[in-house]
Structure formats: structure tokens, C-alpha cells
Nucleic acid binder design. Structure first.
Lengths: 249, 249
DNA sequence: GCTATCCAATTGCATATGCAATTGGCAAGT
DNA sequence: ACTTGCCAATTGCATATGCAATTGGATAGC
């Protein structure tokens, strides 16, 4: 249980007090100054520090809890939450989990790994210098023994610690990264593409077969962390989501 | 501004009072009993009706407002919100808007329209009786004159008023439905598929060309409203989203 | 009829206060 | 050691109250 510097919470005088408090604490959390597990000062302490009534402090904390940034428990106090790995259909998700949720047996193999400088295309795609160090991986994920998805991944060595010592024998790179790196922003795109010759061979489908291509790039404080291209055979795979007019169901 | 029956708000005694109030009103809204535009009783009225303090009622209403179900304005009071047409990358969106946001000129043509009984496949897909009446439409949307997306749509006549009198000359069916029907639940799926012969001809691409297929089915109170299949040429189109660990950005 | 003004309804926000519920940790007893 | 029971810290919830801000609508004046 990490300690917190109480005086780190500062109001900016803009808008309602409860919202100033909410934003102040939110900023400390999302900026990483209060990493997950940090204990947030109790309401009484904040109340004195900020000169607000307990109910006002309470209101701010309740909202933050509803937003999932902090977790509150009676007597044990309030701590910064560990952000959930996945939010919805298209967010970061673990391929092993995805496969197991379908009730199938998961397996994977690292086909190739190259550590070195990024190729011009990769550097371009990612805004890297040619002098940066990256790992380049090709991974095949299987469900019930059959090829499920082909993963091509670039990891920026400077953004992750322990990359050189990890051989991804136990954990596929996507899941490993979730545990060993932080990210503050991601962008993904979905498109359809025909399988190339090599890709088709690896996925055990015909060349030109339509596939879903999911591309995702991830940054931490505007520093690149990883980029990945996931190629799913289209006839075997679909992304499904359910929702109502007022939000996801 | 529709009136509300005050006695429609009933608590169930489960959990905190403010949450009972919140759920009671939410249920009235999502069930359609209080449709968009209905005015919600003022805090004082609810306070007396429910025997709770104003702050407690207030708390429930503030939460509902934060969730976007109601809109509150001083003096004019609280009204049920019109649900936003689009939430994120993959939610219901208007194709005309989508095209215009890309800075291209939008146009569309209704290629075919058939009113009658559903085909066996459609009935199956949608859980309709063969005796139900449906309209079956094939629409081509264009961006800058070039085929953009092919829309195949089934509309359940019983779920929409004024369907027979509408010729979709002014407004494409998707947008028309957003204005003339309610929906409480939707499901969509994304997959990749090769263009069939006719589809390829209409979209002006090669047969077998990989395409993104977006399928969406929509219900209102478990009654089917519409089902649609949108076929996007894959090389020309991608869905992009951006987000951070604590939610969409 | 049109406009300027004022009033009152309604929500927004903050405080002060009290009690309930949960539970970590200490203390006492075995 | 190990268990039991109690205490106090901390959050959860509700009430009562007061004032501020906004604005629809009535009213007065032109």
C-alpha cells in the first residue's frame, strides 16, 4: 500500500468544488503520479486539506469510484484501481482468453523473432527513429489445434523493461505486454483484406481468402510501445457486440 | 411536452433509496413509458410523493443526467433525453454523415424494394413469422460518385409506422428509421467476406474482393424492428477508434 | 402589439450533522 | 499459537437547510 502525498491534491478554482476535487485526483491517477494500488487519503484528511465539507469530498470520490478509477471499501479506505484490461468488444483483449471463452483449447507458437532496428516501413508507421531498438515477432495462435489468428507485432524496446530477457515461451507477447508495460493511448482500425501467400499458408486457408485485419498501435505518454496486426480468417471469425440506445448492454 | 403520471414512480425497497429512485425512473425511461421529451416531475414533487429528502431525490436525478437519460435545466425542469444517434466507432451511425465527415459528396439510390412476406432465411434470421409483413430494400450509397457501401435491409412493418407511405426518395432508410422508430436493443457483428458476383458488380469491384460485412439487428421491446447488412469494400474502408485505458478518448 | 422588467419555479451546489455498515487490527483469553 | 470479541477508522447514506444561478412566463409600460 503505497503512501500518498496529501499536498499533491490541489484545486484550480474552476467550476464546482466537488468537480475540482474530482479532476485533481483524476489527474493524479491518469498521470501515473498515483499508480494503481496507491491509497487515496481518507475523506477527513482531504476535507481538512482542502477546506471543503466531508459531503463535498465524498461526492467527488463517489464519482471517481463510479468511473472505476478508484476502489473504496469501508475501514480499509480508498485505493487507486488497476485499470481493467478490456472494456468492450474492440478493446484490448487477450487472445488466450478470447479463445477459451469460445470453449476451445488455446495454443500458440512464436514463428519468428528478430531483434534489431526497425525496417523503414515499421519506422514510418510508428514514428520511430531508425536507430531505435525493436523486437519483431510473428506469432500464430491456435484454437483446438486449428490456426486462429496470425499476429505480427513490433515492440519498442525503450518502452518496455525486460524485453530482451523474455522469450515468450510461457506467455504470448500481447498478454506479456499487458503485464509489463503501461499504455496511455491506443488506436485501432479494422479492415478487410485478402490473405497473402505466406499468410494463407500459415492460417491454412486459400490465398486471397477474405480476412479481418485488426491493427492496433499503443503509446505511453506519446512514446510508442507496440504495434500489432492481427489477421483473422473472415469466414471463421466475427466480432459481435450488443448494446442499447443508452449504452452497451 | 408530455405530462407524466407522478404515481408511476414506485420504489421497490431494494438497496439505497437514491438508487431505488434512480432505477425506478430509469425503468420508466428505457421501457418507453416515459418517451423522449416527457417532462420528469420536479424534485419537490418526487420528494413528497416518495417521502425522501430533496437531496436524495437530487442525487438520483443527477446520476441519471450524468448517464445521459435525462436533461435538466433550471426553471424549465427535467425532461427525458432523446438518445444520441451514435456512441462510438461501431454504434449506429448515419451513412450520409459518415460520408460527409470524410469530406466527400454523398448520394444514394434505392435499387430495389419489395413489400411482402419475409423469405424463409430472413424469417429465420430475425425470428419473424412468415405471415408478418416486411419491406426488403437494396440501397447503394455513393461517396463522390463512387460506390461506397451496399445496404441490404429488412424492415418489420409492425414495428414502424408510416412505412408503406414512405418511398425513401428523400432520406435513406437507415436515417429514416432513426427518426420514425424506437429501438431498445441492437446487436451487430463484423466479419470479412468476399464480394459475390452481383455485389461486386454493384460496388464496381472484382468478384471475391475482400469486404467488411457489418450486420446489425435492432429490436424494440423484443419486437424486431430492422436488420441490415452493410457491405464495405475492404481496401477502401476501415473503422478507426481511439481510446485510453480508462475509456474512449 | 412589442418590449423591458420582475417574479417565482426549478435546479445546482455546499454545509453541517447523525447514524449505519463494514472490517482491519488489537487485546484478551484459551 | 490460535481464536474470539471488541473497538475505532472509514466509507455509505440520508436529512435538513440555505443560498446561488437560470429562465419561463406574467406583468407593466410604451
Amino acid at each position: 500500500m503505497t503512501e500518498t502525498r496529501l499536498d499533491a491534491v490541489k484545486l484550480d478554482g474552476a467550476g464546482p468544488v466537488y468537480d475540482q476535487i474530482r479532476r485533481a485526483i483524476r489527474d493524479l491517477v491518469v498521470s501515473g503520479e498515483w499508480p494503481p494500488g496507491t491509497s487515496v487519503p481518507p475523506e477527513h484528511a482531504l476535507m481538512e486539506q482542502l477546506g471543503a465539507s466531508r459531503m463535498t469530498v465524498h461526492r467527488a470520490l463517489v464519482q471517481l469510484a463510479r468511473e472505476g478509477l478508484i476502489i473504496r471499501r469501508r475501514r480499509s479506505g480508498t485505493v487507486v484501481a488497476t485499470p481493467p484490461a478490456s472494456h468492450a468488444m474492440l478493446d484490448i483483449l487477450s487472445i488466450p482468453e478470447e479463445v477459451r471463452q469460445l470453449g476451445q483449447v488455446y495454443a500458440y507458437e512464436v514463428l519468428t523473432r528478430t531483434d534489431g532496428r526497425p525496417s523503414p516501413e515499421v519506422a514510418e508507421l510508428f514514428g520511430l527513429k531508425r536507430s531505435d531498438k525493436v523486437a519483431h515477432l510473428l506469432v500464430l495462435h491456435r484454437a483446438d489445434g486449428k490456426p486462429h489468428v496470425l499476429e505480427e507485432r513490433v515492440i519498442h524496446a525503450a518502452g518496455v523493461t525486460g524485453l530482451a530477457d523474455e522469450d515468450f515461451a510461457e506467455t504470448p507477447p500481447g498478454d506479456w505486454l499487458l503485464q509489463h508495460s503501461l499504455w496511455s493511448q491506443a488506436e485501432h482500425a479494422i479492415s478487410a483484406i485478402g490473405a497473402g501467400e505466406e499468410q494463407a499458408a500459415l492460417l491454412d486457408i486459400a490465398e486471397g481468402e477474405p480476412c479481418l485485419l485488426v491493427e492496433r498501435r499503443t503509446w505511453n505518454q506519446s512514446q510508442p510501445v507496440t504495434a500489432v496486426r492481427l489477421l483473422y480468417p473472415g469466414f471463421r471469425h466475427r466480432f459481435v457486440g450488443r448494446f442499447g440506445p443508452y449504452g452497451a448492454a
